[in-house]
Amino acid sequence: MNIFRFLGDMSHILSFLLLLHKIVGGKSAAGISLRTAEMYAIVFCTRYIDLLWNFASLYNYLLKLLFIGASLTIVYFMRYGPSQKATYNADEDAFPVQYLIAPCAVLGVLINQDHSSPFEMVWAFSIYLEAVAILPQLFLLQKQGEVENLTSHYVFALGAYRALYLLNWMFRFMTEPDYQQRIVWLSGLVQTALYCDFFYHYYQSKKGGLNKSVKLP
């Protein structure tokens, strides 16, 4: 464990707290993509299936349970919460996710760390899917132009988590002999690259004060 990975995990937890605060606390799903939320639930339920047999550490175990629980809670409220459904914009949240899930599934089967292990295929699928899971959310924000304050912090924290993981991988690559995780490195790079445009507008809007809303062209 190094500071970059710890901060990355904390940023990930923060993104969940912000989203739960908005959806469950604020009873509003305005500007939030259910498609992204559902893809993240798929990502965690597939990647963390090794909860059943892998106890790398209590820290990992607890956070895996937290991420699965939080992502399923978000999907549940967005699908069945009366006020959340009323504020969720289904026709704007229209990104064709089948064009994301299918290629990731094919890639997961073809490119993974052990072609004889179904878990490795599922694990690789979840890594690839996470890299693109944010696209419906960014697509929705682009469509709406203006990003509500809490939503902008949620997306920022979610983007920052994988950016911090990139620093974590660089640190581990430099300090641990023969450490390499090409699948997660490349996917993490793609994932973080997708946020660059948002990061730029987030920074532009927040340098005038944290409560300014983010405007996307």
Binding site: D9, D50, A56, S57, W123, Y165, V184
Partner: peptide, 10 residues
């Protein structure tokens, strides 16, 4: 085919 890396990260 990449050799197995332990999955110690989230």
């Amino acid at each position: 085919e990449e050799e197995e890396e332990e999955k110690d990260e989230l």
